[in-house]
Write a protein that binds this DNA or RNA. Sequence first.
DNA 1: ACGAAATATACGTCATTTTATATATATGGA
DNA 2: TCCATATATATAAAATGACGTATATTTCGT
Lengths: 117, 117
Amino acid sequence: MNIDTVQFYKQLADETRLRSLVLMAIEGELCVCELTHALGVSQPKVSRHLAQLRENRLVRDRRAGQWIFYRINPELPGWAHAVLEATVKGVRHREPFKGDRKALATMPNRPDAACCA
Amino acid sequence: MNIDTVQFYKQLADETRLRSLVLMAIEGELCVCELTHALGVSQPKVSRHLAQLRENRLVRDRRAGQWIFYRINPELPGWAHAVLEATVKGVRHREPFKGDRKALATMPNRPDAACCA
DNA sequence: ACGAAATATACGTCATTTTATATATATGGA
DNA sequence: TCCATATATATAAAATGACGTATATTTCGT
């Protein structure tokens, strides 16, 4: 797959998008409400940033009933995957990324991506 | 070394800065006039972006006579180096990065970083 | 000390990006 | 059909970022 390098990095250059990407890279598919809860930001804010990630093809979405699950686009070029992997390794034990996973883990009534396929 | 992740990616999210970083990652130390020539942009533009990279500690500078040589900061955290390496591997054979190296190679009166130490 | 070359900074302006708030759309269940 | 939940979009204001042009600073050679 092809991708503009600067545009790719512009997507990583925002806290909301970066935290969403790191969380998806670690946890796999996540729906908007899970991301909203994990990051502790407003729903429109998450939604807008996810739309931007989708437009730039960093992520893909899938509707499952009332939920829409987002995941890292598996068709990203190899170097982009490598960049994301290196980032995750480097920052996953730092804040706010660490706290995001904790908040996600304690979320009540969490929809299960696997069961809604 | 410590670095803010979003701030790091903001530095990569601009064409002039990204081209400069990729060129430095491949060629090693470069002075402002070499970057100006290679990228084909104005001197103040290059200088301003290099200053920003220095302020965010992505690069270090070294004065050698009338020239100031910039290089990737070797003290960047490992994951940041990995990100840069992956990027270089992925984009070095694409434009404009490929052309930047060609323009640098054909630059007349190029100062030699090694001889000016 | 003076001029030339290399580099840095200041200023005003324009374009892009992000945000909050409000509202619209879509889905599922009663 | 009606309501609740999940998600998306519109709008306008605010913040941020990049740019060209002009000028300042530093260093070297004479």
